[in-house]
Simulated assay, not measured.
Amino acid sequence: MCRWLAYTGEPLQPAALILDAQHSVVAMAENSPLGAETVNGDGFGFGWYPVANTDAAGPRHPSVFRSIEPAWNDQNLREISRAVVSPLFFAHVRAAAGPPIQQTNCHPFRHDNWLFMHNGAISQFGLIKRELALAVDPSLYPLMQGTTDSEVLFHLALTLGLADDPIGAVRAAIRRVEEAGHAAGVQFPMQGTLAVSDGETVWAFRYSSQGRSRSLFHSADVPTIRAMYPDADRLSLFGDHAQVVVSEPLNDLPGVFREVPESTVAVLDPEGYHHEAFLDA
């Protein structure tokens, strides 16, 4: 389907993870050993929040760069990801499962200060697309520019209170998908991993109706990794609060990445991270 990465922590050049890691997101675009598809070359997206301005009031709003080029072939991604410094960013490489290859179908999706991305699919989406799209709040409906199930899911979560209760809203959106799918005779309507952020916290979900979700991993805390690998010079790039959640481990070092359990949400914020049970399949 796709592969993605979310980072939060001390401000960092995104290229350190998107381009330069041993198994970077761009490397996953060309060869994804744990993915449903080996190659994810149907476009990419990169969304990032600016470094906090203590004089500015209100939430930080992200910037987004999306392209239908394969990630490994886009010079602009290389330029931007090395020029930008960000404390929180998303990166996504796409393998189109049906909706056309167009820029508006590339992740991440943005609304106000929110970013959203998804790896997976709503099974037989065409059967329930109309019902789900019409469940989106009328004020949000015109903002959907693409044709993907992921964008509808995002706007459904916004409709169901994402700004006030992210976990509850995503839970309600997925249950709405499952109810519509089951009514249409779809046995396992929901599949995937997804991430959402308001610019301060990242919520990363692993869930499928079948209980066999796409892969998802979370990095151990940086001080622990430094203690395990004191001679790893590359760790100097990362501050003590750096956290990564990603579809596949970014390197082969044992203990650095830990699998996020099935039916779980990983919550990453300035205080650290924790896991919560999400939904029963």
Score class of each variant (00 low, 15 high):
F116V: 03
W72K: 10
M228E: 08
V202C: 07
A135Y: 02
R171I: 06
A180T: 03
H182Y: 06
L19V: 13
R212V: 14
T193S: 09
D137P: 00
V246F: 06
S247E: 00
T8D: 07
P108A: 09
F46K: 01
F44P: 05
D233C: 02
P33H: 07
H118L: 14
E262C: 08
A29S: 15
A157Q: 08
Q103K: 14
N53C: 07
P223T: 09
R206F: 01
G161V: 06
A36T: 13
V265I: 10
A15F: 07
R214V: 15
D165N: 13
G43W: 00
T201C: 13
C2M: 09
S213M: 14
V202Y: 02
Q210H: 05
V85L: 14
T159D: 00
L250Y: 02
V186Y: 02
E179G: 05
V136K: 00
S24I: 08
Q13D: 08
S86W: 01
L88R: 11
T147A: 09
P100G: 10
V84K: 06
A15I: 07
D198W: 02
A133W: 00
L250I: 03
L34P: 03
H92Y: 05
G9P: 14
F125D: 00
G185M: 04
P249M: 05
G120D: 03
G255D: 02
V202K: 02
E10K: 15
D112P: 03
H111V: 04
V93G: 11
F89G: 05
A16M: 06
D55C: 08
V26W: 01
